[in-house]
């Protein structure tokens, strides 16, 4: 009882704290000085059409590197939690796999045991549709992260689109094998290249993750804005590989 009262009190207090913020706020008439500076200078300094990209990749590039690190930590945590970090347990699990095959982490050997609630296979329609759509979705994801400096898109969105294509394939056929070596290589190399490009900026331009060590090019062209398309593509590959890894380790095919 006292607990419920406390919860209600806390929520009311927070609601009262929110209230002036929600109703007192006027629609802003102009940008804050910092935002105005970004909008005014991004074209001249970096040559990006998309100001958000200029902020994510360049002005706040270090924050983005941090966020990619958080993403990596989360993906590593998922893999660790789902594929039992304890070696003895893993051995036991591998031994028991032959018997009931329920815990197979990548599920390729899940069917032998014939567990009671076997997952329904993806239908013919889904399989054909997934096979047809997979390259298109993949291409769309790549388009999104390559054009991150020109259109509303970027590495994070493109990476998620790419991972969603893999999710579709896994829906269609749960036992689909993924190239783990390729995934790990893509993730590790793109992450290292991201930092490498950042260091190149430190060496050849004004600072860490400064994309201006490449020529700015013509405004609005695909190959413009210095290294921003390269950095965003690397982020896209990394995010795509990490989320694909998450999707892969979360599946259960028994």
């Amino acid at each position: 009882m006292i607990k419920r009262l406390l919860i209600i009190l806390t929520l009311t207090a927070i609601a009262f704290g929110f209230y002036p913020l929600a109703w007192g706020v006027e629609d802003a008439r102009q940008l804050s000085p910092l935002a105005a500076g970004y909008v005014e200078n991004s074209v001249e300094e970096l040559g990006t059409s998309n100001v958000v990209t200029a902020i994510v990749v360049s002005y706040r590039g270090l924050d983005t590197l941090g966020e990619v690190t958080v993403l990596f930590a989360a993906a590593a945590g998922v893999t660790l939690l789902m594929t039992s970090g304890n070696p003895e347990r893993r051995k036991k699990r591998a031994a028991s796999r032959g018997k009931d095959g329920k815990d197979g982490k990548d599920g390729k050997d899940g069917s032998e045991g014939g567990s009671d609630k076997a997952r329904r296979q993806g239908s013919e329609l889904l399989a054909a549709g997934a096979a047809f759509l997979f390259p298109i979705i993949w291409l769309f994801g790549i388009y999104i992260f390559i054009h991150g400096h020109l259109t509303p898109g970027g590495g994070f969105q493109g990476g998620v689109v790419i991972a969603s294509a893999v999710l579709l394939i896994i829906f269609a056929d749960c036992r689909q094998e993924l190239g783990h070596t390729v995934l790990q290589l893509a993730e590790a190399l793109s992450g290292a290249a991201y930092v490498g490009v950042g260091l190149l900026g430190l060496w050849m331009a004004a600072g860490f993750l400064d994309p201006r060590f490449l020529a700015a090019g013509e405004f609005g062209e695909l190959f413009s804005a210095g290294a921003i398309p390269i950095i965003y593509s690397l982020i896209g590959i990394k995010v795509g590989a990490e989320l694909t890894g998450i999707v892969d380790s979360l599946r259960r095919c028994s």
């Binding site: 909008v39 994510v56 924050d63 989360a74 945590g77 789902m82 970027g154 969105q157």
Partner: peptide, 24 residues
Amino acid sequence: DPIPSALVLTAIVIGLAVTALMLS
């Protein structure tokens, strides 16, 4: 204002990964 958009852009993807971590 482009700054909140830039923050939320990454926060959404991080939220997805953190949700996956919690689920596992």
